[in-house]
Amino acid sequence: MLEWLIEEIFAKYNYWISITIMLIGFYAMIAKSNLIKKLIGLSIFQTAIFLFFISLADIGPIPRGTAPIVSEAMIHKGYVYVNPLPHVLILTAIVVSVATLAVALALVIRMYEEYGTIEEEEIIEKERELGV
């Protein structure tokens, strides 16, 4: 039982933490009524996905991993490069995430100018009053 726990559960702890953070962000996106809170949840969700991919690329304590920058000295000391492909993908994803955040914030500001509030329920009520 203990062996199974260590091999199957503890060996993948990064993935469980990544899933936990992802669900925290997802809960904020669904349940919170404030639009900026929703965007904070979105950021947390994205970061959880990045954590998952970077964990997939990493190489653990044995053999020791090193950053993917060519250096013969590190290799002769017995280090192994970590996988650079997920890093490239995640760099692109971070760029897209900041672009998404900026456009969403611009939309939130426009909504505030239009409705005078950034709470989702009040916006829905006001739309109902206007008869949209």
Binding site: D58, T66, V95, V98
Partner: peptide
Amino acid sequence: MHSVDVAFTEAAVGAGASTAFLIAALSR
């Protein structure tokens, strides 16, 4: 986790630029 480029980007973007954006949006 040895991914220095991603860490650099995250420190510049996540802790710098997007915080500045959110505070700027909050000020309005």
